[in-house]
Simulated assay, not measured.
Amino acid sequence: MALQFPEIDPIIFSIGPLSVRWYGVMYLIGFAFAMWWANKESEKPNSGWTKEQVSDLLFYGMLGVILGGRIGYVLFYNFNKFLADPVTLFKVWEGGMSFHGGALGVITAIFVFAWRTNKSPLAVGDFVVPMVPVGLLAGRIGNFINGELWGRTTDVPWAFVFPSGGDEPRHPSQLYEAFFEGLVLFLILVWYRKHPRPAGSIAGLFLLGYGTFRFAIEYFREPDAHIGLYAGVISQGQILSLPMVIGGLGLMIWSHRREAARAA
């Protein structure tokens, strides 16, 4: 007995040729939360941040998410198509965004912003990462509403039959990701940053947490049909998540050791 997908219309409303989609609204929710959170943090005593800097950072971050997400999707998941038709990079109406590409875009934006404002990239990264999980949560809910990126077939009682996924019940892997990569990761970061931490350790924890959750959930998510599993065991998402796990753990260890050496 599987749950039937509610078949929510991905378009909220249309005015002439303009359509407002749930997925786009989810992106707006993520950016709105980031704006609220960043401004709230900047108002704390001795935050070291001004409203103007927050506005600039959010602008850089938005560009990083959109450009990095699109470029990453094309290069990581549709590289052969890109080689055959490079213009596909600009066909955004066909859909396709990659979190890992967006993450690289945001990291680039952090370094550019830090360079232009003479701030530490580690400190900027620590400031940014708590905003990210809420955007991930909203985005994965948008994937669920669209009935896309569903999971592998299963017989668990909470499985869904997605219209685009055939007649077999599947894991609602979008909701798994929304819960773990979104809500749980956000709560972990909020808890961890309650006390002063070495610069870079919060960003490292985000990379470690996201990479670990994504790697695990990939076992429940249906691999991309045109890519499948490498060697029959590992997905593209897992390959892209491994560097995040290793890099995040390394950054946390390095930042704590550097702090300890300074205090010695």
Rank of each mutant, 00 (worst) to 15 (best):
L122M: 13
V161S: 14
V20A: 12
T88F: 01
G139H: 01
Q238R: 11
L187F: 00
G96D: 04
V134C: 03
I15Q: 10
G209K: 03
E7R: 13
R214Y: 04
I234T: 11
M26S: 14
E218P: 08
M97W: 01
L240C: 05
P163L: 12
I145Y: 08
L18K: 03
G102I: 01
G200E: 07
A263V: 08
T153A: 15
L75W: 02
V74H: 01
L67P: 03
F213Y: 14
E7P: 09
S120H: 10
L3W: 13
W49M: 14
H226A: 15
L63V: 13
F82V: 09
L187V: 10
M1R: 11
G204K: 03
S42H: 04
G16I: 03
G248L: 02
E259G: 13
L75A: 12
V134W: 02
F213V: 12
S19C: 03
F144V: 04
F99V: 05
A109C: 05
N39A: 06
L187H: 00
P45E: 06
S19N: 13
V156H: 04
G30L: 10
N46S: 10
L251R: 07
P86S: 05
W37Y: 14
F113A: 11
M1T: 12
Y77S: 00
R257V: 15
R197N: 10
S19A: 13
P133W: 00
P45A: 06
G211H: 09
Y230N: 08
G139F: 00
H195T: 15
R140L: 04
A199F: 02
E259F: 00
I141G: 12
V245L: 09
Q53T: 09
Y219Q: 08
A34W: 00
L229T: 11
Y77V: 00
K91Y: 12
A38K: 04
Y176G: 14
L175E: 08
G72W: 01
V54K: 03
F5T: 02
M131S: 13
F144M: 07
G68N: 00
P157S: 14
G72I: 01
F13G: 07
F215H: 07
L242Y: 09
T212G: 11
E52V: 00
G228M: 06
L183Y: 01
L63C: 13
M26H: 11
L136R: 00
N143L: 02
P130W: 01
I202V: 15
D85Y: 06
G105M: 01
A264E: 05
L83N: 08
M131C: 13
V156T: 11
I71C: 08
Y73A: 12
P45Y: 10
L57Y: 00
G200P: 06
N46Q: 10
L185W: 06
A2T: 07
T108N: 08
E43F: 02
K194C: 05
N143P: 07
F5N: 11
I141S: 04
D224A: 04
P10C: 11
S164W: 02
A264M: 06
Y210A: 05
P172T: 13
D167Y: 03
L18H: 06
I188R: 05
T88Q: 11
Q174C: 11
G125D: 08
W191Q: 12
G250I: 02
A199K: 12
